[in-house]
Every structure is written in C-alpha cells, then in structure tokens.
C-alpha cells in the first residue's frame, strides 16, 4: 500500500463511520441552526439589525460548531489503537493525518457551506451577500479543520478536554473571523470582496500546509 492509498483508506474509513453514525455529523449542524435561531429571538426580529450582524453571527456559530465535532476526531482511533498503528507506519504521519483533517472538513466544513444560504435567509442577509458567505465559508473552513485538529491532538490524552480545546483554539480562529465577516459585509454593501477572500485563501493554504506538522507532533506526544 503506498501512501496515497493509505490516505484514501483513512479518509474512506472516517467517512464510512460517519455514515453509520449520522447523528454525530448532524448534531453540530443542528447546533449551528439553533444558535442562529436564538439571535433573532434574543435581539428582536428587526431586519436592519439582523442584516447588520448576520455575518458575525453565522461565522461565530460556525466556529462553535467546528469545535463540537473535534473531540471525536482522533479519540476513537486513539482508544482502539489504530492511531498508534498509523504512527508506526513508514508513511509520513503528517501526511496521513491530513486525511483525517479532510474527513473532518467534509463532515463539518462542507455542510456549513451548503447550509449557508438557509442561514443567510433566516438572518435576512441581502441576496448579493449569499455567495460571499458561501465562498468565505468554503475558503475559511479548511483552516478551521486544520487548526481544530491541532487542538484535538494536543488534548487527546485528557479525559475532559472539551473546554480546554475551545480555550486553545478560539484565539487562533480570530483572523479568519475578521476577514470572513468583512467579506460578507462588503458583499452586502455591493463592495469589492476579492481582497478579503484572497487573504482567507492565503490563511487557509498556509494553515493546511503547516498545521499537519503540529498535528503529527501533537499525536506523537500523546502516544509516548
């Protein structure tokens, strides 16, 4: 088995597990939908206010939803020993683990992108901003998954790592939040959004290339 086949089989395994336990993949999405519903109830349904704060709400909710799925990312593989097997293989661990990051993105990032028109509709976002929201999520969520995997790998040994993971990760998510919400806001006002989207893409590329090194180091550390 060469490393590409290994990569594909790791990805396929994660997807198959998710297909058998659909609620695990669906719960974060339902959570996202509910958080987005809470804001109009808390602030009032005035369309002006909602339109104004919609990008921020959707993105903050997306960050929180990403955190929800993280504790499962490596935990099962860690408990049944298959993660240790991956560490022992001659294939570079950092490369193999990107398959798990990709699986996480397919299960949590991509559904967010697909769900975004519905969220935009609920929060009264102008139609011009819909594609900007979808694009910002499409470009930003890979970085969320990659950074999230670092947090998940660092807290692998801990029984209750959940709150610690959020503590570690949320500060690192801030640049993405800033540029993504600004892109959506600009699109709503009919302004140019290429600059923000380009920066988002740059951050994602940088994160997805560098993060696997940290993920692999963190997984190795958790094995000792």
């Amino acid at each position: 088995m060469n490393s590409w086949q290994l990569w594909r089989s790791v990805l396929a395994k994660d997807l198959r597990i998710a297909a058998r336990r659909r609620s695990d993949a669906l719960n974060p999405l339902m959570f996202l939908l509910m958080v987005v519903t809470l804001f109009p109830l808390g602030i009032g349904p005035g369309p002006d206010i909602l339109e104004r704060i919609a990008p921020g709400i959707i993105w903050v909710a997306a960050l929180l939803a990403t955190l929800l799925g993280l504790d499962r990312l490596f935990k099962d593989d860690y408990n049944d020993g298959s993660l240790e097997q991956l560490c022992l293989l001659p294939e570079p661990l950092a490369y193999t683990l990107t398959a798990k990051v990709a699986a996480h993105w397919l299960l949590s990032g991509l559904p967010l992108v697909l769900l975004s028109p519905l969220l935009a509709l609920l929060l009264n976002l102008p139609v011009d901003a819909w594609w900007a929201l979808a694009l910002s999520l499409l470009l930003g969520t890979p970085a969320l998954s990659a950074l999230g995997a670092i947090g998940a790998a660092l807290t692998l040994q801990l029984q209750r790592g959940g709150s610690l993971v959020s503590l570690i990760l949320l500060p690192l998510f801030i640049p993405l939040l800033i540029f993504a919400t600004s892109a959506v806001e600009n699109a709503g006002m009919g302004l140019d959004v290429h600059a923000q989207l380009a920066i988002l893409a740059a951050i994602s590329v940088l994160t997805v290339t560098l993060a696997p090194l940290a993920i692999a180091a963190a997984v190795r550390m958790s094995m000792n």
């Binding site: 950074l147 670092i150 660092l154 807290t155 040994q157 801990l158 790592g161 610690l164 503590l167 570690i168 500060p171 690192l172 801030i174 640049p175 951050i203 560098l210 993060a211 940290a214 180091a217 963190a218 550390m221 958790s222 000792n224």
Partner: peptide
C-alpha cells in the same frame, strides 16, 4: 492551562511547547 492539564509533567510541557509554537506563527497574523 494546557501545561497544567496533564498528570505527566513532560507531556504537559511538550503539549504547551507545540501550542506556543503554533501561537507564535499565528501571532503576527492575529
């Protein structure tokens, strides 16, 4: 928080080291 979260001091130190390095890469971006 990460440093003190582990029972084993060396594991905690390694985890905190990794996080500090990740943070320092992110600091200019932030």
């Amino acid at each position: 928080a990460l440093y003190y979260a582990f029972d084993d001091v060396r594991t905690g130190a390694k985890a905190a080291s990794i996080l500090a390095i990740v943070g320092v890469v992110n600091l200019p971006i932030i």
